[in-house]
Design a binder for these strands. Structure first.
Lengths: 117, 117
DNA sequence: TTTATATTTCGCAAATATACGAAATGAATC
DNA sequence: GATTCATTTCGTATATTTGCGAAATATAAA
């Protein structure tokens, strides 16, 4: 069989989450938020991290877009927290990945099965 | 304390590995190689994956550079395998990350401690 | 030595990521 | 309404990533 296949959702999702974690600033933010089990202001983070405010805001936006964190507006602040549900999902996916629990059949699929499903 | 800090090796390494995993082709290759517990030719992969030969070669190069795989020349082929040692290290790092086993003190460090250590 | 095969490197184009300062936003307070 | 504060968006510059085909490389076979 030499047909080109498409990636499954699992593979695409793993890549998407990995991308969200592919910068030290974002790794740090996620580690801190998941550890604190509480929330955090953008202003607190910019004090510690070696980037400017607007750059930090971009990183927060990316993590939000990836669904890994969420912001709650508490004027004049915005409190950022881990998105527990998606974070647990990410953890499970990665655990499967690292422990080789993902079956070969979950790596690729034929185009047809995507179209007709 | 509002001094800017630097990232620890753990944070930098997590970001680096995540970056290597931030593309579906690379996730697929790593999953396949770690699952097979054997090796794989570039030619086999290009048959399955939706990218051309030179593009696949780039992805393999990146994974090699990240230390996650290694290539053994078996003319006229090159056999690619998981780099077991580094893969185990990556697994441990990620497991700590996902389980919140990394202490807060392992996230950032003062510039001084880098310079004088 | 020529030919065939597998893979990589090169050159290029397009898209995405990273960073910053300045300006804009949105809510509370004066 | 004007001011203040925390944060985001905009505009811009630069660097990196992704992709491809053509050319180069390296080895085995004819």
């Amino acid at each position: 069989m030499s047909d080109k296949l498409e990636f499954t959702q699992e593979v695409i999702e793993l890549a998407r989450i990995s991308k969200a974690l592919s910068h030290p600033v974002r790794v740090y933010i996620l580690l801190k938020l998941s550890k604190m089990d509480s929330c955090c202001y953008s202003g607190d983070l910019v004090e510690e991290l070696p980037v400017g405010r607007s750059t930090l805001s971009q990183h927060l936006k990316e993590l939000k877009y990836a669904g890994l964190i969420q912001g709650e507006i508490k004027p004049p602040y915005i409190k950022y927290c881990i998105n527990r549900k998606n974070w647990e999902r990410a953890k499970k996916l990665f655990a499967s990945f690292l422990n080789n629990d993902l079956g070969v059949s979950t790596l690729l699929q034929k185009t047809e099965s995507l179209i007709h499903s």
